[in-house]
Design a protein around this nucleic acid. Structure first.
Lengths: 226, 226
DNA sequence: TTAATTTGTAACAAAATTGTAACATTTGAA
DNA sequence: TTCAAATGTTACAATTTTGTTACAAATTAA
């Protein structure tokens, strides 16, 4: 996933946390610690989404938001408002300030991520959603997470790439050579049997109890999802 | 098989022939008779493959091709170039214009079909199925599965290859020597009688109850599907 | 740095496949 | 009908392939 996100927030700790995590997830991020700077930087940066603190040293989040909506070139910019608990929550909810969503501090990064995705998806459908699905399995390439029926499955890096590879063509049988070529970095030499071990590890993680086997062994040919 | 194919070609007779036959084969087809229209229509139509005439009234095929390769959202579109005989064949071959394959007119529809399949398989393995069918039997080479009337039949590797071999020419009678050559890896020596045993195993798996015999013994000659 | 995780491989276990021999049955020509 | 040749069938040991585990080396995180 790509996308540019701008943050206007005066608490450095929050900026740091959010910015770091968003960048890890493939976003390009920039930020300001007050409203006036923020408005200027914003126009240079041309973000796809704005994270906006409700309370800022100079301007309030609502004022910034109105300002943005006036400018024709930014009046569609999606905005997620960040508020401290008890900070006039109800007002914000009822407010028709053009905010797309809001989030109450303290929040987990996962919550934030979910909101960001939802808002981006609404405003710009084809920049988001990079999920691979098969049966009850879902692999989120952006967040590098895997779920089976909403239950998260933790995978090591190689297992993740392996599953990702299978999911691009589920049901298709891949030989060990094909798997090696596609899943391992070029010019590394690993034994073909190594794949078997990784398949075993992937199976162990992915085959939750009460769930049917997902990986099929095709003797003398390779493996596939099923 | 599904897939969307766009044709840019100024000879109506060719368009008609190709379009009709492709549609009969399950493709969704659209076309233009000149380059400029073609480029516009193309983007709306979002094809999986482009058939492109080398000589067009306005733009040349090469120009169109370059145009396509520039556009990031289409730079992976597979292209098959159609050329009249003698029309600078060599140039085209040597040309690094990003063409995936080319075909010289006049061509048979089967030739075209083969190229299309090959190119699609390369660029997007998923959209092309590669199934062999005979009677109520279906063998899926990609997924390595065999069905008889939707009921899956499990086969060992050799039985699979054996059936695959018969299905490429059903009804034809193959001698044990021919079978050996084609189904067994080169330079292995197995008794001719071994084939009988594998035929027996294949029969056992394939001949579900209430189904007619599929493998015919031709005394002193060999076996065939029937 | 240390600790934790991940990775590749070897070694062994388990399972599936394979080829062949031995015997049974069928076929078709004499 | 008889009988030899061809094919069907079965069982089984050898081989191949895959599953599993353990562990040291390499990588990454803390």
């Amino acid at each position: 996933m790509n996308g540019k996100i701008f943050i206007i927030e005066d608490e450095p700790s929050i900026i740091q946390l959010v910015q770091h995590n968003l960048e890890k997830n493939g976003f390009i991020v920039s930020s300001s610690v007050n409203g006036n700077d923020g408005l200027k930087e914003l126009k240079k940066f041309q973000p796809d989404l704005l994270l906006l603190d409700w309370m800022l040293p100079d301007l309030s989040g609502v004022e910034i938001c109105k300002n943005i909506r006036k400018d024709t070139s930014y009046n569609n910019l999606p905005v997620i408002m960040l508020t401290a608990k008890g900070e006039e929550e109800d007002k914000i909810k009822g407010l028709d300030s053009g905010v797309d969503d809001y989030l109450t501090k303290p929040f987990s990064f996962n919550e934030l991520m979910a909101r960001i995705k939802a808002v981006l998806r609404r405003s710009n459908p084809n920049t988001v959603s990079d999920n691979l699905k098969f049966d009850d399995l879902m692999l989120d390439r952006i967040e590098k997470r895997v779920f089976r029926d909403d239950q998260e499955i933790k995978l090591g890096p190689t297992e993740f790439r392996l599953l990702e590879f299978f999911l691009t063509n589920p049901k298709r049988v891949y030989s060990r050579d094909q798997i090696l070529e596609s899943v391992w970095p070029n010019n590394v030499n690993v034994e073909s049997r190594t794949i078997d071990v990784h398949i075993r590890r992937l199976r162990q993680s992915v085959n939750l109890k009460n769930k049917k086997e997902l990986i099929r062994t095709v003797r003398s040919s390779g493996y596939s999802l099923i």
